[in-house]
Simulated scan of single mutants.
Amino acid sequence: MMWFSPSRMEAEGTTPDYRFSLANERTFLAWIRTALALVAGGIAVDQFLTDLTWGLRTSIAVALFFSGAVCALRAVHRWVVCERAMRRGEDLPSSPFPAMLAVGTAVASLLVALAIVFGVTR
């Protein structure tokens, strides 16, 4: 697995312009910040929305935790795929993941908003 083997990555193609590698790394870090924000959101839902029913609160929090974990794993996978493509001189791959993450986050936000507005409480 190239995630943990820099020497295997270096064996792929030729070294790209360092600016592109650094931009790829900044994108990776942005995805990691997003993952951390999703985890923090899950903690906030669980700890601060205590008036919500236990099932709803727990479901939203777990969905946010799961999304954060998926986002973190996707970040490292995307970094490897893009780095490899740059080293090989290939086009960067497209991905539906940003749209899926945006929709998932919007759904979680709407669930919380609806629960608060309609008073789904214990």
Rank of each mutant, 00 (worst) to 15 (best):
M2C: 04
S5M: 03
S5H: 14
P6D: 15
R8M: 07
E12M: 14
E12G: 06
G13V: 03
G13W: 02
T14W: 01
T14F: 04
T14A: 09
T15F: 10
S21D: 14
L22Q: 09
L22D: 02
N24A: 13
E25L: 08
R26H: 13
T27F: 09
T27C: 14
F28H: 10
F28W: 10
A30N: 09
R33L: 12
A35M: 06
A37R: 01
V39H: 02
A40C: 07
A40H: 02
G42Q: 00
G42D: 03
Q47L: 09
T50P: 04
T50G: 14
L52R: 01
T53E: 03
G55M: 07
R57Y: 09
T58K: 09
I60S: 00
A63R: 01
G68T: 01
G68S: 06
G68Y: 00
A69I: 08
A72H: 07
A72D: 12
R78A: 14
C82E: 15
C82Y: 04
M86F: 08
R87V: 03
R88D: 03
R88E: 07
G89T: 05
E90G: 14
D91P: 15
L92F: 15
P93W: 01
P96D: 03
P98D: 08
P98R: 10
L101I: 05
A102Q: 03
V103A: 09
S109C: 15
V112E: 07
V112W: 03
L114E: 13
A115F: 06
F118H: 11
G119Q: 14
G119T: 05
G119P: 06
T121V: 12
R122P: 08
